[in-house]
Design a protein around this nucleic acid. Structure first.
Lengths: 359, 359
DNA sequence: TCAAATATCGTGTGCGGACACGGAGTTTAA
DNA sequence: TTAAACTCCGTGTCCGCACACGATATTTGA
């Protein structure tokens, strides 16, 4: 291996191999019309010199344009998918000069038909790559079949569908994130404590992610034999009926007097926090997911004790970056990427948020 | 504001402003020889079109070379500074084609004279920027005075010296990281518990960081009025005398029988873990700093309960990146950057480490 | 009034790589 | 035997920008 520094150019390789720049280029892109003798000479020099192309010059010279499409749920300000959107936006900016153009397409996460509609319109634009949040399993499978037929590469974000030919997946290990939530919530909990687990009915089906988190949660309880030491109370919220939900909570607290912890597996722990505040039950331990502004607010106030984060903006950013690495830079990439599970508390939220904003 | 996409070139600006490319260039780099009328016309179009230069083309065209020097402690494999080194290496690779060359200079962190020596040799090479781990306060101040005289910009990493004209600082908020360690360690600790705090004598002075962490730790205790509920036992280790340290620990455990937690403020909690394992005292809560391989090993085994991480590789990487942003890309940067305090446990260490390796 | 100095500006070249084009040499077919 | 087809490969142009060079007004001084 040669020195790492000091840039070696195609021109240098050409001289050393005794051919012209064009021939080196042909070897590099193996696009034929090269004699075996020339090819071998060039290949040898390439290896000896440890050549790596100047990606800046490459993108500058390349006339090929890349159109990427992102397919994920629409959102209101402050909701989870806004963070994902932000990550895509950042990537768009960074890779613009590499001739990458990013288009975002939103669908209604409670209406599978809207996904079908949007995905069909995406096909017509013949993109160079697609990034999908596979909320709707069957519809997504049908969509990626079409993509496969057109040999359009795709990546999953947030969750994934096994046994498909995706480029990358970035998302949380949901099971483990439920497991760890249990540990944080139930750590040193006195015997006989009552724990409230909130599920939320969605207009559509229950999301796969919250289901898996819940499994991880109960798995921790079993592994640590907490089943009969703790008393788990399950309750069900309705998605958009906050006053009804408040009433449900109120009843639970009226009927039970050893409640020490509450948990929910979706990203809307702020609504729980709000209700607990209204009921003056801020002494129970409360844990939730994702760093929505409202969640952070209650974390700082101490009403929410822990939030588990998953860097959704990075998920989006890296998804784009990796597709560039594959298609443009021809680099190796990792297919399955579980995000770190960030444990946030009142004491470390400040630096975390600040850092994320400046990166 | 105009459309974001679709690249606007200097040539486009020139046409729209009715001048030549050269004039636009002169305005962009405000290097004079432009009439007020032309300047105004160009400036107006620049704003209207929301022009942003193609950084790829700029670096490609620029003949200026940037030599950056990193000045930080030498290390053995597995030690803390190896992570920093890794971050610098990554940055070197990424910015190589932007004409940036990075040289690393190591000094002995226990010998201020070695810092003076190395820093003097750095001055002679007339670098374009310097990154410093200011372990030795006075010597560093003297060094940055010289840098100021030569108008060489510099950044701090790991810790910083106030009231100096550094470009950026990346590092942990040490006080807060001690505070949060206390919270994790002392959470739900029964009254009367004994807590062992280990300090380590260094051949040189005590490091400023571990001192500040300890202050944060005690500050948590005071704020939560744990002073008389808990019994803090202070012990002192010697830096390189492991068998002596084991003996010290042994005596402590012989004389005290309610020890429930142990903490150290440097990055070598693995040595504590090792001793506790030898003494069969693995049921005490144990907490430490930084994700050295050995620390991670004991965390996975459950002997260490928490590690607080600070992403040292990112610190180095961002330090370089920000200097590039300032000198080459002329972008705005943030001066003081506290790293997130990552809370790692057995349950989330795996994904965290994996993710960091693939980024 | 005319040369010299100055202010202003356009043009050309190069950075490293992609790719189109076409030239030179060789093989095939008629 | 000669044109056509094919193989192999060098050259030229362009990508967007930086910067040197020198050209063209315009002003100044004597």
């Amino acid at each position: 291996m040669a020195e790492k520094n000091h840039k070696i150019r195609i021109k240098d390789i050409a001289v050393l191999a005794g051919v012209s720049e064009g021939t080196v280029d042909r070897v590099l892109h193996n696009r034929g019309d090269v004699s075996d003798r020339s090819r071998e000479a060039v290949t040898k020099v390439l290896e000896e010199m440890n050549y790596s192309p100047n990606l800046l010059a490459r993108s500058l010279a390349s006339k090929k344009n890349y159109n990427f499409v992102c397919l994920f749920p629409s959102f209101e300000p402050g909701e989870y998918w806004e963070c994902v959107d932000k990550g895509f936006k950042q990537a768009a900016l960074e890779f613009l000069h590499h001739n990458v153009h990013i288009e975002k397409k939103y669908f209604n996460q409670f209406d599978s038909q809207s996904f079908v509609c949007v995905s069909e319109s995406v096909l017509k634009t013949e993109p160079d790559a697609v990034f999908i949040a596979p909320i709707f399993r069957n519809e997504t499978i049908s969509f990626i079949n079409d993509l496969n037929n057109l040999t359009i590469p795709y990546s999953f974000i947030d969750s994934m569908i096994e046994n498909t030919d995706f480029n990358t997946y970035y998302g949380q290990n949901s099971f483990q994130s439920g497991f760890i939530a249990a540990k944080l919530l139930l750590n040193s909990m006195p015997d006989g404590s009552q724990i409230v687990v909130i599920r939320t009915k969605r207009k559509g089906s229950v999301s796969n992610q919250t289901l898996t988190r819940r499994n991880g949660f109960y798995s921790y309880i079993q592994e640590n034999h907490l089943d009969n030491k703790l008393n788990i109370i399950s309750a069900e919220f309705n998605n958009n009926d906050e006053s009804g939900n408040l009433e449900i909570l109120k009843q639970i607290f009226k009927q039970n007097h050893s409640i020490r912890a509450v948990i929910t597996f979706n990203s809307r722990v702020y609504s729980l926090a709000m209700h607990l505040e209204a009921l003056q039950q801020t002494n129970v331990r409360l844990i939730g997911y994702d760093l929505l502004e409202e969640n952070v607010k209650y974390l700082k106030q101490g009403i929410v004790n822990y939030i588990i984060g998953q860097r959704p903006d990075k998920q989006a950013y890296f998804t784009v970056r990796d597709m560039c690495r594959k298609l443009i830079f021809r680099q190796e990439i990792n297919r399955i990427n579980y995000m770190p599970m960030d444990v946030l508390m009142k004491e470390n939220i400040e630096d975390y948020v600040q850092f994320n904003e400046n990166i």
